[in-house]
Amino acid sequence: METMSYLEAGRAALSDEMSADPDVWALGEDLGRGGVFGQYRGLAEEFGPERIMDTPISEACIMGAAVGAAMMGTRPVVEMRFSDFALCAIDELVNQAAKARYMFGGQTRVPLVVREPMGMWRSSAAQHSQSLEAWYAHIPGLVVTAPATPEDNYRLLRAAIRADDPVVHLEHKDLWPVEGALERTVTPPGAEEFGRARIARQGGDLSIITWSAMLYRCLEAAEALAAEGIQAEIIDLRTLWPWDKATVLESTARTGRCLIVHEAVAVGGFGGEIAATVQEKVFSSLKGPVRRLGAPRVPISYAPPLEDMVRVGTEQIITTAREMMHAK
């Protein structure tokens, strides 16, 4: 066991996979100098410029080249810098990477990973703050991961690189400095990492389903609720496709209350998918309506007080949980 930041865990995962497999390489802007957040620091020195490849500001080509290189038997790791910029490469991801295996009848696979730093981070405003995980979860062919802890960033990124499917790996920018314990395993994490949620806190009164940075707001809320005698169970989903229905349904059936919390816009968000599934499968066990918290359908502001208007906060989670407990 060692202690590492979320950022270092990502770097360690890539470094370990690159050491294990010469077909693994990474490409993106500014990687040669460590990447814009330092997630690649030292890797160019260790693996050389051909495997930690500096690219022009050509997102479509970064992603498209990765598709071509993946179909040729290598395992590219694409760095998109900010998840918002992946929109410049959406054809390459959605129409090409996600479809090639299918439309070519299984003649090929596209084993690439797209690392997309996501989410709200220090007044980054409307074009550098978005959480678009629901878009990717919507696309057949893609795997979607959204780790909340250093350990999960390490395990899920390694597993993503080893997977034969295109994986969108969403790293939350606000989590870069978060520290946690992890084991740099010799036996690499594999397919069992996906679709397996983690119960981050046990509780019998209500189930709170969340992922990525919102995990920490939910844990804070659970702490406060516990002081009032409300025991919230916190489920960190870890991956959105596939997502761990069994754990969510078991928990919600047991507590009878389900609250979904995510940073993304609530309208059309992945919370809606979870809410629909819960009511379809365990309706009779529910003690009240399934609730969800997400951002209002407004772009994200620059000025901190305005930015805070769209941020789901701990207080909001506490209030909603209380309402759910006292309904009826």
């Binding site: 080509c61 498209g64 080249a65 071509g68 038997g73």
Partner: peptide, 21 residues
């Protein structure tokens, strides 16, 4: 490819793979 021009960037990457190998 059903998307006009999409093959150009894929071709570039296929060549990256050839180079790597």
């Amino acid at each position: 490819n059903g998307v006009v021009g999409a093959n150009i960037v894929i071709a570039a990457g296929a060549a990256n793979a050839i180079r790597l190998k």
